[in-house]
């Protein structure tokens, strides 16, 4: 039964099924887990977080493309996409500049993946959403201002 209404536009292109939950899948993956950069995740100031990942001198680049809404319909669910056009892209970070801890996510890209990620984040208040990219050992960034509103109605 095809009930998946939300996927309607994708239905015809939907190719994957045969889903098998493999809790055990996790175990071999743990071995490759990168160490968590706790000082970056705990940092309360954007500058400290950037320093913690080594990106204090990151340069703004139009080769980093960030898509974020002008106005977040709901601050608890802000859809962000980041694409890097820089050769040798190794990692992508997403920051919400005015969150209590600005660093939201770090994505380490391994061979076989496009330099693209999309993720939905929570924002404490209107702020720049910043994407930092590490490519060939250098740091680059792009940012987009997103306003969040505290709403009362929705219909």
């Amino acid at each position: 039964m095809d009930f998946d209404v939300a996927s309607r536009p994708l239905r015809r292109r939907l190719l994957a099924t045969c889903a098998v939950a493999l809790a055990a899948l996790w175990l071999p993956l743990r071995a490759i887990a990168a160490d968590r950069n706790t000082s970056a995740f705990d940092a309360k100031a954007m500058s400290d977080a950037l320093r913690s990942i080594g990106a204090a001198d990151a340069i703004e680049s139009d080769q980093v493309v960030i898509k974020a809404p002008d106005i977040a319909e709901n601050s608890a669910i802000v859809h962000i996409e980041v694409e890097s056009k820089l050769p040798g892209t190794q990692s992508i970070w997403v920051f919400a500049e005015k969150n209590p801890q600005p660093l939201v996510a770090q994505f380490d890209l391994l061979p076989g993946i496009d330099p693209f990620v999309a993720v939905r984040i929570k924002m404490a208040e209107s702020a720049f959403v910043r994407a930092v990219v590490k490519a060939d050992g250098k740091f680059w960034f792009a940012q987009k201002e997103t306003k969040v509103t505290l709403g009362g109605c929705a219909g």
Partner: peptide
């Protein structure tokens, strides 16, 4: 309300492409 703004509608479409409430459905 999304009908009035292309940007809001686009964000809506991004969320609806794989909405968080699938588990409820």
């Amino acid at each position: 309300g999304f009908m009035f703004s292309r940007a809001s509608r686009s964000h809506y479409d991004d969320i609806m492409a794989f909405p968080p409430f699938l588990g409820d459905i």
